[in-house]
Amino acid sequence: MGTFVKFYIDGKECIARHGTQLVKAACENNIYIPTLCNYPGIPPKGACRICAVIVNDKAVTACTTKVSESIVVHNNTPELEKFRKSVVEMLLSEGNHFCPSCEKSGTCELQALAYRYRVTVSGFPYMFPFREIEAWHPKLMKDHNRCIQCKRCIRGIKNDQRKSIFAFGKRGTHVEINIDHDASEGISDELAQRSMDICPVGAILRKRKGFDVPIGRRKYDNKPIGSDL
C-alpha cells in the first residue's frame, strides 16, 4: 500500500496514493480527464493522446503518468480542450464513422466525446478509406471502417490460454486489428460480449445482437460521458 500524496489539478488540491495512474487519481477526486485508449484494469498504452494534460509545465498523457507528491496538473484549459477536440475530429476523419446506422451509437465513446466537444463536422478532410468487414467468425464481426486502433481489445481480451484473440495485421497506414483464427476459436458468448464492450467504438460487433438495447437505455443516452464520476 503506497502512501498518500497531495497534488493539484487546475488549482484544486487532490489526494491519492502515490503511484496511482493520474486518470484514476483524478477520477477519485471527482475530476474528469477524457480517455479513449485507456481501459480500467488493463495496462495503459498512451496511444490516442486524448488524455493529454500539462504536468509541471510538460505535456504528458494522463493514462501513462503516475501521481507523485505536489505535482501541478493542468487539465481543463482552453488549449487542452481544443487539442482534445481535434483528436476526436482526426479520428472521425480518418475512418468511416456513420453514426446513424451504427449499433454502438449511444454507447460509443468516440461519439460521446464528439458530443462533449460539440464536433458537428470534422475540421480535417474526411479520408473515406476503403475498408473491409471481417465477418468469417461465428460470433464476432470486425468492422475496420470504425477501428481507431486503440488496442484495448489486444490488451484486454485473452482466451483461456491467456492468448490475445485480436492481433495486428498488415502494416503502416494499412494496419488492421484482426480476429486471430486459432486464439478465437470456440470463444464463449460471454467473451464475445466482453470483446464488443471493450471496444470504444463499433469496430467489434457481437453477431446477431445489434440494436437490442432501445434508445433511451443506452450508456450515454442520459448521462453524457464524463458526467458520472
Binding site: P100, S101, E103, I133, A135, M141, L205, K209, G210, F211
Partner: peptide
C-alpha cells in the same frame, strides 16, 4: 451490400 443484416432496418430507414 456487405453490411451485417441486423444493421439494415436502421440503415435503410435513412
Amino acid at each position: 451490400q456487405g453490411r451485417p443484416y441486423w444493421e439494415v432496418p436502421v440503415l435503410v430507414q435513412r
